[in-house]
Simulated scan of single mutants.
Amino acid sequence: MGDADEIRAERNDWVSDHRAEYLQSGGTRGHILDLAGVGGRTFTTHCLIRLRGRTSGRQYVNPLIYGNFGGELVIVASKGGADSHPQWYLNIQASTTIDVQIATQAYQATWREPSDEERHEVWSYMTHLYPPYITYQQSTSRRIPLVMLALGKSIDVFTS
């Protein structure tokens, strides 16, 4: 096993490859992945989110695991259990809407964070979909955020 920098680089390569495959295929590949080898499920669903950097103004596209809870998409700002929030989550907080692509369909979405009992139910649901989230939460003192997306108008699928 490599050191933390090597592991991080390998993970970044995997994420970059996944994003490229999803984008280049127009969503016909990359939506469902087998994550059983890393403690996940055989059929794990992934979306792409697209938003602007809050300080850079640059456009970013991130592939993320998602679930459908009560008709809303749920994404988890886990960052693998790191002690800091992922940049995409900080960028979402600075936005009112984000773009999301699910397989071959894309939408503009509004977002919110669940609280109290709803948050507990959504967290339980997401840890069932992807059990490593439990370990991620145990490895950090921050409360891993959950983001719920309500899909709005259809938009063109992402190309970059």
Results as ranks from 00 to 15, higher is better:
His31Pro: 02
Leu129Thr: 06
Tyr107Met: 01
Glu10Leu: 10
Arg143Phe: 05
Arg142Asp: 13
Asn68Gly: 00
Gly71Met: 11
Ile32Trp: 10
Ala150Trp: 15
Glu121Asn: 12
Asp5Asn: 11
Ser84Gln: 14
Thr45Glu: 09
Tyr60Phe: 14
Tyr107Ala: 02
Gly67Gln: 04
Ala103Leu: 07
Gly40Ala: 11
Gly80Ala: 12
Arg142Cys: 04
Leu146Gly: 08
Leu151Gly: 00
Asp116Leu: 09
Asp83Gly: 10
Asp13Glu: 07
Leu51Met: 13
Thr104Phe: 06
Gly37Asn: 08
Thr104Trp: 00
Gly67Lys: 09
Thr96Met: 10
Asn91Pro: 02
Arg58Leu: 06
Ser95Thr: 05
Ala82Asn: 13
Thr140Cys: 09
Val122Gly: 03
Ala106Gly: 04
Thr140Asn: 03
Glu72Lys: 06
Thr159Pro: 06
Ser84Ile: 07
Phe43Pro: 13
Ile75Phe: 04
Leu35Val: 02
Arg8Val: 05
His46Ser: 11
Val122Phe: 15
Thr44Asp: 02
Pro132Ala: 03
Lys79Met: 15
Lys79His: 15
Gly26Ser: 06
Phe69His: 08
Val76Leu: 09
Glu121Ser: 10
Leu151Ala: 03
Thr97Leu: 07
Asp34Phe: 07
Ser115Trp: 09
Ala94Leu: 04
Arg58Phe: 15
Thr127Cys: 10
Pro132Val: 02
Thr45Val: 13
Ser25Trp: 10
Ser115Glu: 13
Tyr66Asn: 15
Val76Lys: 00
Leu33Gln: 11
Tyr136Trp: 08
Trp111Arg: 09
Arg58Ile: 05
Cys47Ala: 03
Asp13Val: 14
Ile144Pro: 13
Ser78Gly: 06
Ile65Met: 15
Lys79Tyr: 13
His46Tyr: 09
Asp13Cys: 06
Phe43Trp: 10
Met1His: 09
Thr45Ser: 09
Ala20Pro: 04
His46Asn: 14
Ser115Gly: 08
Lys153Phe: 01
Tyr60Glu: 01
Gly70Cys: 03
Gly40Thr: 12
Met1Ala: 11
Val147Gly: 15
Ile102His: 01
Cys47Trp: 05
Tyr22Gly: 03
Asn12Val: 01
Glu121Leu: 10
Met148Trp: 05
Val61Thr: 11
Ser124His: 08
Ser124Pro: 00
Ile65Cys: 13
Thr159Glu: 04
Asp5Pro: 13
Asp5Ser: 07
Asp99Thr: 01
Ser139Gln: 15
His120Ile: 14
Val61Pro: 03
Thr135Leu: 08
Asp83Ile: 03
Ala94Thr: 13
Thr140Ile: 02
Met126Ser: 11
Ile98Tyr: 10
Asp99Ile: 02
Ala94Pro: 11
Gly67Ile: 05
Ser141Gly: 11
His46Val: 04
His31Phe: 07
Leu23Met: 10
Gly30Asp: 04
Pro114Asp: 08
Tyr89Pro: 00
Arg11His: 14
Leu146Gln: 14
